[in-house]
Design a protein around this nucleic acid. Structure first.
Lengths: 215, 215
DNA sequence: TAGATTGTTAATCGATTAACAATC
DNA sequence: TAGATTGTTAATCGATTAACAATC
């Protein structure tokens, strides 16, 4: 039922291909060779062809790749051809910022509800989406066919929320809390550890800056 | 002057070590072996020892690693023993959320100013930090010893801001705009492409969920 | 057809894991 | 001293790059 095993490195790169192809599409580019794309993306043409061939032969010898077709196919692989209902758990600054992030909708992610522990926020709406209290979370997930929970609670509370979510049919968690969640294998976790990213920047500034070493 | 070449894979993992060691420290754990740490972190002990030995011998045979010492040393490697002045460029939802993200300060990142194009925001303050107009950016960076610019402007404007920053002594850019910036090699870019991350979650939900494949 | 470019196999490179001598 | 555990070398594994036959 599934393709053969795809390496994490390939999955990591897939959204970037999708973005570049989207840009090409916006610029009305009809076709592109792996060689041209490799120059734009600053990777090897060989890698592009290898990566794509994990999922099928999308190109044509002597022609290259049709941009629109490849864009659509990668979109399907990424699951962007279907819509995904999600909730935001944690209505702090970051949660609210994400709630306002309109780009979601265009790629099929539909915000259905926002949850928080703070009773002061109860029934307030962000972009027309109501904030609920945590005790409603489990029922809400069941009743609204929610696939994804965006976790923007403080580190201290992330564990208990994960516990709560373990007992639902949620499929994935987009985790912004700075902690490694413990969850059943059936729930996918994608971490966005902002602090880690900032530390890497700090590391690189200290070690590469001023051309000490190559990029 | 610099250590020998460190692979990106190692740099990627460094902040996670730092976090786990911080947690151990909070729990008053005095020493830990690579083997114990490997179980907690779900990596091999061999990898931990290899990774650390890129930077020096921090352990002791028969004893393991002193948690506090190792934590401090990794902090130094990451540049967290010094403070870093930064500005936020783009005072939208995400920019404001990051401005309110207090965790920065504890690790030495000091917000000095916020910049935006919207004249309505002029001179408004967030957490006591004033919002300036873009035309002040270059002088502000020079006068306030700014190392890092956090880029939270829309994709469409990211290019011109990058252009502006190219002509400053900024050392690094923490880029939240969904675009690959073109900058001189002397400026480090660390990307946080939220959309990419969400797409990876979507991919994994579609391909791994319900235990179809291993995690 | 000739030229271009893919899909795919083979070669290389680098990262991870295993093993173990050194040593606390 | 004996036991534990590192630091480091060697072996393995996997990912990237190169090469080229297939084919549009």
């Amino acid at each position: 039922m599934d393709e053969r095993e795809i390496s994490q490195a390939v999955i990591q790169r897939l959204p970037r291909y999708y973005r570049f192809l989207g840009d090409l599409l916006d610029n009305n580019v009809e076709r592109i060779s792996s060689s041209d794309l490799s120059k734009r993306m600053n990777v090897t043409a060989s890698q592009i062809r290898q990566d794509l061939n994990n999922f099928g032969g999308f190109g044509q010898q002597g022609y290259g790749y049709n941009v629109k077709y490849l864009y659509t196919e990668i979109g399907k692989i990424l699951g962007l051809d279907e819509s995904h209902n999600f909730v935001i758990v944690g209505a702090g600054n970051l949660g609210q910022a994400l709630a306002n992030y309109a780009a979601f909708e265009t790629s099929g992610f539909v915000l259905k509800g926002i949850f928080d522990v703070n009773p002061k926020l109860k029934d307030i709406s962000i972009r027309g989406i109501k904030i609920h209290m945590m005790d409603e979370l489990k029922d809400f997930i069941r009743d609204n066919n929610i696939e994804i929970a965006v976790l923007t609670v403080p580190k201290e509370n992330a564990g208990e929320v994960a516990e709560l979510l373990s007992d639902t049919d949620i499929k994935g968690i987009w985790n912004f809390a700075h902690i490694d969640l413990k969850l059943p294998d059936s729930i996918i976790v994608e971490n966005v550890h902002l602090a880690d990213s900032l530390m890497r920047l700090s590391y690189k500034i200290g070690h590469y800056a001023k051309g000490d070493l190559q990029k």
